[in-house]
């Protein structure tokens, strides 16, 4: 026998469904169903600064001095955790050419992570040039493996998993490296460089190296995609290598003539703040860089450095 749906039962069922949906929306943390709201920005607590700027030393010395402001790497990394360290290894270039992150700095970060008891430290980049040549000639492979980390290939689609990017109307899905999806902690180690189309490349632009189908960024709007993608997974700490700074012909560089030695470094828990500081070191105002401004607007982080707790460290030599 077939039960007939009367108008009355239909209306009753509708009421039940809407009631349950309302309860679900209220009790669960599903935000942004009707808008683009992001969680409020939470700064660091207590004496821990939002941003540390170090100047005047070698990359490794500056890092070791700067990380003390957070009470050492153990502030970020706990025993038994898996860590992804993402330097910029985009180009088949030597460390002196400033196109990639300083290998000694990457090595020191890996060493600190291992020292904090990290179970695994993965390092990779979706390189622009031949990946083997980039890993080897940048010196990063050697530095990472000497310090107990593991270089992971990132040159083929099979190493990536598809994820949905939240709160974005320009980029909805992306193929992101599987180690990043798996890792407990994420350390972003960009190098500060000029960039022909993104103006400057710092931490948020460096995240394009965890994406496989990054041609989509270029076709859909580079700045919008960079800023929106940054909300997907915020790194636990950003370490901006501004020791050798490529001031023109970036991001690849033509010759060592493109390099200025700024001898600086920025460590922050906030990517947008780190990029704002990096932009200032580069010599441009952060507001003029569309992806930094957009990320600030979306609440990924803050570029108003005046309102942040900043610790400045000057090293001799």
């Amino acid at each position: 026998m077939q039960k007939k749906i009367t108008r009355r039962t239909f209306l009753k069922k509708c009421l039940w469904i809407s009631a349950l949906t309302t309860i679900h929306i209220i009790t669960s943390k599903t935000r942004g169903l009707f808008g683009e709201a992001l969680p409020d920005y939470e700064g660091t607590a207590g004496d821990i600064p939002d941003l540390v700027g170090i100047t005047g030393g070698k990359p490794v010395a500056m890092f070791e001095k700067g990380i003390e402001a957070f009470g050492g790497m153990s502030y970020f990394i706990k025993k038994g955790e898996t860590v992804v360290v993402k330097p910029n290894i985009g180009w088949d270039k030597t460390p002196e050419e400033g196109a990639n992150t300083d290998p000694d700095l990457v090595g020191a970060i890996v060493r600190h992570c291992v020292g904090c008891g990290a179970k695994k430290v993965w390092v990779f980049d979706h390189t622009c040039n031949n990946w083997k040549a980039c890993y080897e000639n940048s010196g990063i492979k050697q530095a990472v493996e000497d310090n107990g980390g593991m270089m992971v290939p990132a040159h083929a689609e099979q190493y990536y998993g598809r994820v949905t990017v939240p709160h974005s109307d320009v980029i909805r899905q992306a193929l992101v490296h599987e180690t990043l999806l798996e890792a407990d902690r994420f350390i972003n180690v960009p190098v500060l460089k000029h960039h022909g189309s993104a103006r400057v490349t710092i931490s948020m632009k460096n995240l394009m190296g965890v994406v496989y189908d990054r041609g989509y960024f270029h076709t859909t709007g580079l700045h919008e995609c960079i800023a929106d993608f940054a909300a997907l997974r915020k790194p636990d700490v950003v370490i901006v290598d501004a020791y050798r700074v490529m001031l023109k012909n970036g991001p690849r560089g033509v010759s060592p003539n493109d390099i200025a030695y700024k001898r600086m470094q920025v460590i922050s828990t906030d990517m947008v703040a780190a990029d704002a500081a990096g932009a200032k070191i580069f010599g441009v105002e952060p507001e003029t860089i569309p992806h930094i401004a957009r990320a600030h607007q979306k609440g990924v982080g803050r570029m108003d450095l005046d309102n942040l707790r900043i610790q400045r460290i000057k090293m001799a030599g």
């Binding site: 622009c128 960039h195 022909g196 189309s197 993104a198 041609g215 270029h218 076709t219 859909t220 709007g221 580079l222 700045h223 012909n249 991001p251 690849r252 033509v254 569309p290």
Partner: peptide, 13 residues
């Protein structure tokens, strides 16, 4: 819209 993939990768500018 900004793209610039070609200039980014060009080794000789």
């Amino acid at each position: 819209r900004d793209c610039g993939a070609c200039a980014e990768h060009c080794p000789t500018k």
